[in-house]
Each structure stands twice: as C-alpha cells, then as structure tokens.
Amino acid sequence: MKTIRIIPRLDIKGPNLVKGIHLEGLRVLGQPADFAKYYYENGADELMYVDVVASLYERNSLHDIITNTAKQIFIPLTVGGGIRTIDDIRNVLKAGADKVSLNTAAIKNPQIIKEASRTFGSSTIVVSIEAIKENNGKYFAYIDNGREYTGIDVMQWVKKIEDLGAGEIVITSVDREGTGLGFDIDLVRQVSNLVSIPVIAHGGASNEENIADVIKLGNADAVAVSSILHYDFIKHNNSEKTSEEGNVEFLKRGQTFTKIKPNSIKNIKDYLKFNEIECRN
C-alpha cells in the first residue's frame, strides 16, 4: 500500500498568506512563516507555496519567505507561481525550495518541462493544472489563476506532461477551489488513471470525508489542502504580525468560512487511518 501525503498549500501575495475562492477574491490570513512552522510541527508531509500574484517586482520577498521557511523546516517544500524560465527555477531552488511547480510556462512552452527535468531531475519538476469543466463534461486547462482559457484538453495535457518527464502533477479544480464543495473526484480519477507519476489533488475540500473520498475514489496520491487547515490555525493562534496591506477585514472580524469545517492535520490523518488509508503518524 502507498502512503498518502497531506500537503498544506499556502497561497502567498507579497508578504502575506492569502486565501481566495475559485483562486480569486483574496483574503489576508497572516504570515506564511507562522503557518508553515505550525504545519511542520503538526505532521504536514510536505508544504506547497504558491505565489498567487507572481509579480516580478515582488520576487525577492518570495525568495526571502522560501529561505526563512526552508532553514527551519525539514520536509519537502514545493514553490510555484510565476516561474517562467530555467533560471527562475534555479533561483527558487537555490533559495531553498525542493521542487517547483510550473503552469503557465509549461502551457506556453511544454519543452521547458523536458529541459527542467533533465537539468534538475524529474522529481524536482511538478506541473500544476488549473482545470475547468465544460458543459459537455470535458475538462480544459486554464492559466493565470483560472482566468485565461487555453483550449488545451486536460487529459491530453497530462499524458504529454508525463512524456516530457515531469515528476508529479497537481490537479486543481478551479470550479471547486475555495468553495468547500468537495473535490472533483471524477477529474482526479481520470487524471490519476492516465499517468504513472503521482497526482496531487487540490481544490474544494471542506472536511476530512472529502479527503478520504478523493484518495479512495479519485486515486489521488497526495492531497493539497488550505482552507480547512488555515481556519483551524487561525482558531488556535493569534497571527499578530499580519501586515495591514490587503484585505484584512475578514481576519479582524474573526470569522470563519461556513462551508469549511476547520480541522488539524492530526485529526484528518486519524480519520484517514480509521478508513484504512495509510499515512505517516
């Protein structure tokens, strides 16, 4: 049996950890380093940072966040968002990331997958797909946080990603992302069954049952989770150093998002183990 990974996903904008719905409408939740450390200490199997704005002028702050995190956190760290070139990849790895995830760059120039996996090793290169389902049931890949249509069929794209040498795929359902409506299990299953490389499911989890479902029914090898964990963190911690920049009203009101059932990594894993899904203690 394989061991399933629970991967907290931290969306980053400037210095802040943010969370949106359908990858948009970002709310500031706190400092990424606080969340990262908490998740590391509480059983996260890996961490995933995504620079959601990916503006070039903010790159240095992302590198600082990566370095500060990687120095004290001894689990794998994947970084994505706005990585365009082989040099970008090299710089992010140098800052302390273990893997990079590519989306836009891979769509615009699929050969970068081949070049990057040859240069840095397959297992370092993760390709992230933002999928939106059309009325006819077909999934298409989008870029720019689900805003830009590419006309690329997701199922054809995943085969190509594997052939070009990527080590893993992150499949995000933009339709479900941040909604708490559960994963798009059909999407994850189709993708996972098409390839031999590991598939990380992302988008839509509202509780531990959704996570068990996407593993059992969707054949996911790993699950990227944000809202469930972030709202649990906020309940138990005061993130005092929150920057005043950005949309912080949500935090100040002390609200949580009603569709999401906040939960800790430990509780989620206990639930998975009870359901005969293997994961690290």
């Binding site: 399933i4 893993e168 790993a222 994961c279």
Partner: peptide
C-alpha cells in the same frame, strides 16, 4: 517497474515510507 502483477504503480516513489 511501473507495472507489477498487471497493476499500475506510481514511479517515481514520492513520499513517506
């Protein structure tokens, strides 16, 4: 091997064991 006993297995192995 990415096939074992006619079952597809994920290669590389990425994760905890």
């Amino acid at each position: 091997s990415s096939i074992k006993n006619e079952k597809k297995i994920k290669v590389p192995q990425i994760g905890w064991n």
